[in-house]
Design a protein around this nucleic acid. Structure first.
Length: 695
DNA sequence: CTAGGGTTAG
């Protein structure tokens, strides 16, 4: 070994130690290893190397390792730490970014009360994110005033932090004000205002600023710009624009970056082109938990529930740990499939992975249990939630309503208001529906009027439809008509549809015809309207007119959706169509139905042949006994253990005759029978239904 | 030695 080589090895003398500590600190910050940090800490102490700059670096390393406790301890135990503005700034910055906005603010105030220490520009840009994070507009404004006094308003870092703070506190006008007055703006400044508009759901403004940014500056958009703009496109459901942005992303070579990719996949999902989203998702490249969440949600929104569950399994197989969003989306999928066993399995998984505290997960659980037909479990989960937010309350109210417990839904709503939780747009949809199903017209109007007057929520079509239903159900058809005519927004098919249903219920042929004609224009392809009007005519003996409606249906090429029911038995789903004879136990099923028919006839059952729609004269009764939900019931009675509940799902509204039969069956077989039809639950026990025959 | 912006959920 030559002499020159030996000289390259650092000597353990005092001169070499200072850079060595700096080097170690840098590495520790990168590796985020708390063990390394504590080792360096003891080295600094034993070698008497506790210079202010080393202590400050170490503070930062502790914070980067995620240990605010170590940071605070070091600050408290270092003499003279509180006499250095950099030390304070480091501490404040780390508190701001570690979910401790109030501690950051307290720290800032303590620093200010320390004489001879004055905040510098770094301190201000460190404290503003705390106000943004809280969010605390009044504190932010105070700090704004303070930094004006110090003359820092032209600093690009500080002004950018101000824009972000005002945006996150919900005041885009103040954010825009600061932005407009900036003498110099860089990429981060532009990104901040774009993100601000995005977060305040002002998607059009976000895109407007983006266009201005492209035209007026020579700066290049980065992944932050693109992911935000794509998110705005998703919010606007602007596929054309989204594709254009996708083009720019490709041109800039940023398509592989995971943030950008996630936003792209999400944009395609939200714009309804799920195929494009899947293609992009499968194209390879980096995927993180958000990529998976986005595609799973995309499946849910495009009704591909099975696929959502499969993606979830793939995600786990690839070693990506699901987070709260994943569980929330998966629960939505299984709520829609409504397999209670699967939902329960996910519940236990959520419990095991410690995600049972998240409000969204809990709300999804409530909804899942509700949609799987278990009001009891939904209530149980709801009862365990500590901090119920409006989402939780709304979920529980909706579940009650779907299960026919309108009174309980309204009581829950009142309880929610008493607890000071502010209701939202969707909350009122469930509350007004509950009023309608319980015939509470006055309460309904009270809540409806409180929307605008008390809660400043503009009623939408869903709410007007509820009100039309509310008046229509109790037979106040003329009032309902006038109510619709007085609407400030154009009534759509859901509003007129509610009134048509009421015309059917109360046998108003004249109004029914008029309403149906409006509906035929609004949605010529919806078979439900033709069927409703035809049924109104049939019940009034106007058979020619009924035939005419059916002919019109044929001319318009509308086909009635065929009834289909399914039932889950031991992790398998069995599907039954109307008149189904394809099941291997068909003979037993029809024998079971025959037996049931004889039993209930002795108890007074009379076939309600008006629900027999597609049959030859004289065989109406027979056709009723081929309805899919009856077939599923018979199969359930055959294979399910005695006493266990029968859970049936149906793709259409359940028919009146089946409803009656289910009531009888629940009594005779001493079983709970739960039928989920297209819009609600029927829970049959001891001969009666939870809907009180009112649906 | 200290500073500002990001995707998903009812």
């Amino acid at each position: 070994m030559s002499n020159s080589n030996q000289n390259l090895v650092p000597k353990p003398d005092k001169l070499c130690r200072v850079p060595r500590v700096k080097y170690l600190l840098k590495n520790a910050a990168k590796s985020k290893s708390l063990r390394h940090a504590t080792q360096i800490h003891s080295q600094i102490v034993t070698t008497n190397d506790a210079s202010v700059s080393n202590i400050n670096s170490l503070l930062l390393v502790y914070a980067k390792c995620g240990s605010i406790d170590h940071t605070l301890l070091l600050f408290a135990t270092t003499p003279h730490a509180s006499s250095n503005v950099v030390t304070w700034t480091t501490l404040i910055s780390q508190l701001s970014h570690s979910n401790n906005p109030s501690r950051a603010l307290a720290c800032f105030n303590r620093m200010r009360s320390t004489t001879l220490i004055y905040p510098n520009q770094f301190t201000f840009s460190a404290i503003l994110p705390a106000c943004a994070h809280a969010p605390l507009l009044s504190h932010g404004q105070q700090i704004h005033a303070l930094l004006l006094k110090h003359g820092f308003q032209t600093d690009t870092f500080i002004a950018t932090a101000l824009v972000d703070m005002y945006a996150k506190c919900g005041s885009m006008s103040l954010a825009q004000n600061v932005f407009d007055q900036m003498p110099h703006r860089n990429l981060v400044s532009w990104n901040s205002i774009i993100v601000g508009f995005l977060k305040n759901k002002l998607y059009g403004c976000a895109i407007g600023v983006f266009k201005e940014f492209i035209q007026k500056t020579s700066l290049f958009p980065d992944q932050v710009t693109f992911s935000s703009v794509l998110s705005a496109c998703a919010g606007l459901v602007a596929l054309g624009l989204g594709k254009q942005v996708h083009g720019s992303v490709v041109k800039r070579g940023l398509v592989g970056l995971v943030y950008v990719k996630n936003s792209l996949v999400d944009m395609y999902c939200k714009c309804g082109v799920f195929q494009d989203a899947t293609k992009l998702f499968c194209d390879g490249g980096d995927r993180d938990v958000v990529t998976w969440n986005v595609i799973i949600m995309g499946c849910v929104h495009s009704q591909n529930f099975e696929q959502a569950c499969n993606f979830f399994k793939d995600m786990i197989r690839e070693g990506v740990e699901p987070d709260e969003t994943s569980y929330s989306s998966l629960l939505q999928a299984s709520a829609s499939i409504a397999v209670l066993a699967q939902g329960t399995l996910i519940h236990s998984r959520v419990f095991k992975t410690g995600h049972l505290k998240n409000a969204c997960v809990l709300s999804s659980l409530v909804t899942m249990y509700g949609k799987c037909g278990s009001l009891f479990d939904a209530y149980r989960v709801f009862g365990e939630v500590k901090d119920r937010n409006v989402v939780c309350w709304t979920a529980m109210i909706a579940v009650c309503h779907q299960h026919g417990c309108g009174n309980e839904a309204i009581e829950l709503f009142e309880e929610m208001l008493r607890e000071g939780v502010v209701p939202e747009y969707i909350t009122f949809v469930s509350v007004l529906s509950a009023c309608s199903h319980t015939g509470k017209v006055d309460d309904g109007f009270k809540y409806f009027n409180s929307m605008a007057n008390v809660h400043h929520i503009e009623p939408g079509l869903e709410h007007y439809a509820c009100m039309a239903d509310l008046l229509g159900r109790v037979g106040r058809l003329e009032e309902a008509w006038r109510f619709i005519e007085s609407m400030p927004i154009e009534p759509d098919s859901s509003v007129w549809g509610a009134l048509l249903g009421a015309c059917g219920k109360h046998g108003n042929v004249e109004m029914g015809r008029e309403v149906a004609e409006k509906l035929f224009k609004l949605e010529p392809d919806n078979p439900g309207n033709y069927v409703l009007l035809s049924n109104i005519y049939t019940r009034h003996g106007m058979l020619e007119e009924a035939d005419e409606v059916r002919r019109l249906m044929g001319i318009n090429g509308v086909r009635k959706e065929t009834g289909c029911s399914w039932i889950d038995v031991k992790n398998r789903t069995f599907v039954f169509n109307v008149n189904d004879r394809s099941h291997s136990r068909t003979q037993e099923i029809y024998e079971m139905l025959q037996k049931l028919k004889e039993l209930i006839k002795r108890r007074g059952y009379v076939a309600e042949t008006q629900f027999a729609t597609n049959s030859v004269e004289g065989s109406e009764e027979q056709s009723l006994w081929c309805h899919s939900e009856k077939l599923a019931l018979a199969f359930g009675l055959l294979v399910l253990p005695p006493g266990s509940p029968v859970r049936i799902k149906k793709n259409l509204r359940t028919c009146g005759d089946c409803h009656t039969v289910m009531k009888f069956a629940s009594e005779i077989f001493e079983r709970e029978i739960i039928v989920r039809d297209i819009n609600r639950f029927h829970r049959f026990t001891n001969g009666s239904c939870s809907c009180r025959d009112y649906w």
